[in-house]
């Protein structure tokens, strides 16, 4: 039996459904109403069974015909840049409240532009800080939505 992407993903979902089903059994049920036909556990348990059955079908289904190498196109994909962008997003999420919206957002945009190959400094400058500053001004000044920004607070621009 050849393990291709469909079977591999089926195995992943089978494991996920088993884990979900096991976790579902730990849900606390307060029997305040013994006549309640649907406890907080019922629906997740049913989902685990249905999901497990579908995942099982995915595993036993025949794989679609594939060329000798399983995923030849994967090599042509730009995995490195995508991984770096995902990393930037995680960092951005971590920095947002510590550093502040203006600095972290501008840094995220500049890093993204540079990573994707933009080298024109005027373009990088025009599409980062002014966009973020305008957005923050619109949030604060127009929509009345306050985003905490330790850097601007330190500068005394916002209080």
């Amino acid at each position: 039996m050849r393990i291709g992407r469909d079977r591999l993903s089926g195995l992943f979902f089978l494991a996920l459904c088993i884990a979900y089903g096991v976790e579902a059994q730990t849900i606390q049920v307060f029997w305040a109403d013994p006549n309640d036909p649907l406890t907080p556990k019922t629906f997740p348990t049913a989902l685990a069974w249905v999901g497990g059955f579908i995942a099982f079908l995915l595993v036993v289904s025949p794989e679609p015909p594939e060329p000798s190498h399983p995923w030849p196109q994967l090599k042509r994909f730009d995995w490195l840049r995508v991984a770096a962008l995902l990393g930037f997003m995680v960092l951005y999420g971590s920095a947002l409240q510590r550093v502040g919206f203006l600095v972290s957002s501008t840094a995220f945009l500049v890093a993204g532009f540079l990573l994707l190959g933009e080298r024109r400094w005027w373009m990088i400058a025009a599409a980062s800080l002014p966009v973020v500053a305008f957005f923050q001004f619109s949030l604060h000044g127009v929509l009345g939505i306050y985003i905490a920004d330790p850097f601007l607070e330190w500068l005394g621009v916002i209080r």
Binding site: Y92, F108, E118, M123, A127
Partner: peptide, 28 residues
Amino acid sequence: PRQILVPLILFFSLIGVYLVSFNPFDIQ
């Protein structure tokens, strides 16, 4: 240029969700 558009789309998507909860966990 996509090298400008993509980071902007990512930025607006992330911040759009962040503005609902103000919780960095949502970004992660």
